[in-house]
Computed example of a mutant assay.
Amino acid sequence: MTSFTLTTALLGLGLATIILVLVRRGHLHLRHGVFWIIVAALAALFGAWPMLIDRIGAISGIRYPPALLLLAAVVVLLIKSLLADMANSRLERQVRRLNQRLAMFEADHERQ
Results as ranks from 00 to 15, higher is better:
Leu28Lys: 11
His29Ser: 09
Leu30Tyr: 12
Leu30Pro: 07
Arg31Asn: 04
Arg31Ala: 13
Arg31Met: 09
His32Asp: 10
His32Trp: 10
Gly33Asn: 07
Gly33Tyr: 07
Gly33His: 08
Val34Ser: 02
Phe35Gly: 03
Phe35Lys: 06
Trp36Gly: 03
Trp36Met: 15
Trp36Asn: 10
Ile37Lys: 01
Ile38Asn: 04
Ile38Met: 06
Ile38Ala: 06
Ile38Thr: 07
Ile38Arg: 03
Val39Ala: 07
Ala40Arg: 05
Ala40Asp: 01
Ala40Ser: 11
Ala40Met: 07
Ala41Ser: 09
Ala41Ile: 06
Ala41Leu: 14
Ala43Ile: 15
Ala43Trp: 15
Ala44Tyr: 05
Ala44Ser: 07
Leu45Met: 11
Leu45Cys: 05
Phe46Val: 05
Phe46Ser: 02
Phe46Leu: 12
Gly47Gln: 01
Ala48Trp: 14
Ala48Tyr: 09
Ala48Phe: 11
Ala48Leu: 11
Trp49Pro: 03
Met51Cys: 01
Met51Val: 12
Leu52Thr: 10
Leu52Ile: 09
Leu52Trp: 10
Ile53Cys: 03
Asp54His: 10
Asp54Val: 04
Asp54Leu: 04
Arg55Glu: 13
Arg55Cys: 04
Arg55Trp: 11
Arg55Ser: 05
Arg55Leu: 12
Ala58Phe: 01
Ile59Glu: 09
Ser60His: 03
Ser60Leu: 15
Ser60Thr: 15
Ile62Ser: 05
Ile62Gln: 12
Ile62His: 08
Arg63Met: 13
Tyr64Pro: 01
Tyr64Trp: 13
Tyr64Thr: 09
Pro65Val: 08
Pro66Met: 02
Pro66Glu: 09
Ala67Gln: 14
Ala67Asn: 14
Leu68Ile: 06
Leu69Thr: 07
Leu71Tyr: 13
Leu71Asn: 09
Leu71Ala: 10
Ala72Phe: 08
Ala72Thr: 05
Ala73Lys: 00
Ala73Glu: 13
Ala73Phe: 11
Ala73Ile: 05
Ala73Asp: 11
Val74Glu: 10
Val74His: 03
Val74Asp: 06
Val74Gly: 03
Val74Arg: 00
Val75Ile: 12
Val76Thr: 08
Val76His: 00
Leu77Arg: 00
Leu77Glu: 09
Ile79Cys: 06
Lys80Cys: 01
Ser81Gln: 09
Ser81His: 07
Ser81Trp: 02
Ser81Arg: 10
Leu82Trp: 02
Leu82Gly: 06
Ala84Tyr: 06
Ala84Glu: 10
Asp85Trp: 11
Asp85Thr: 07
Met86Cys: 08
Ala87His: 06
Asn88Phe: 04
Ser89Leu: 12
Ser89Gln: 13
Ser89Cys: 04
Ser89Ile: 03
Arg90Thr: 12
Arg90Glu: 14
Arg90Gly: 08
Leu91Ile: 08
Leu91Asn: 12
Leu91Phe: 04
Glu92Met: 11
Arg93Phe: 04
Arg93Leu: 12
Gln94Arg: 15
Val95Met: 06
Val95Leu: 11
Arg96Pro: 03
Arg96Ala: 15
Arg96Gln: 15
Arg96Glu: 15
Arg97Val: 02
Leu98Cys: 09
Asn99Ile: 00
Asn99Tyr: 00
Gln100Met: 07
Arg101Glu: 14
Arg101Trp: 04
Arg101Gln: 14
Leu102Glu: 12
Leu102Ile: 12
Ala103Gln: 13
Ala103Tyr: 02
Met104Arg: 14
Met104Gly: 01
Phe105Arg: 15
Glu106His: 02
Ala107Cys: 06
Ala107Gly: 03
Ala107Lys: 14
Ala107Gln: 13
Asp108Gln: 13
Asp108Ala: 14
Asp108Phe: 03
Asp108Asn: 12
